[in-house]
Design a binder for these strands. Structure first.
Lengths: 114, 114
DNA sequence: CTGATTGTTAGCCATGAGACTAACTATCAT
DNA sequence: ATGATAGTTAGTCTCATGGCTAACAATCAG
């Protein structure tokens, strides 16, 4: 099971549309900073902050060669998030059995003014 | 495909450990505000803000009966997030074919200081 | 060396998140 | 009515986020 803080950072990273778009674009293959930044109506330094967050969160890797920095997706970085969601779904499904049971206790309560 | 803003709010909601814990707890069945709040070392108003965020984000539903507010999970609320991740994964896997190709272009570059 | 390209750093600013206390409302029990 | 219980509202505080400009560093082309 992933650490709480890891999930915090992961979901936090995914909570931004710019960063999700970056990931989606990188999914098609590596790209340079300038190429990545082009579609966004945003100053470069602002954009770099997003890249840094993604890198800090382990979602991408970057390497610099000359003045060109190339960004690559870190496949598998999303795994902890998927795992958490899967756990949730299993719990929810397990709960279905008990739902009817719970509803029964409600109608048996001392007062239902409907 | 889910809207960007919907995903923003969804992932933002999941980026907090308190809120994830609330969801995990609710996965076992509905609970009242006080019951939910008990395990957290946090003032009630602070806790309520989390509940409100979850409700605003459509992750939970709440109903009040007398002075008791009962919170319930909204099953399926996580679906857009799961869908986005699944899309990502498909893209990544599709990319694998082209990875070797890409690496080939690198080694053919003007300079590899390896 | 000069200048363009590519990225980086530093510093500023507005906003929102997430916590708190204090005071309040509404319900239930007696 | 009184008081306890359950939740709410209002207002404050601090810090992180995400944007900007301006200036800088480093590399490549000529």
């Amino acid at each position: 099971m992933a650490n709480n803080q890891e999930l915090d950072a992961l979901f936090q990273n995914l909570a931004d549309p710019t960063r999700r778009a970056i990931l989606a674009r990188l999914a098609h293959g590596p790209a340079t900073v300038t190429d990545l930044a082009a579609p966004f109506d945003m100053a470069l330094p602002s954009f770099l902050q997003h890249l840094r967050k993604l890198e800090d969160g382990g979602l991408i890797e970057t390497t610099k060669q000359g003045r060109i920095r190339t960004c690559t997706l870190r496949v598998g970085a999303l795994a902890p998030a998927r795992t958490w969601m899967e756990e949730q779904r299993l719990l929810w499904e397990g709960r279905h059995d008990r739902l009817e049971d719970y509803l029964a206790t409600l109608t048996k309560g001392p007062d239902d003014h409907g």
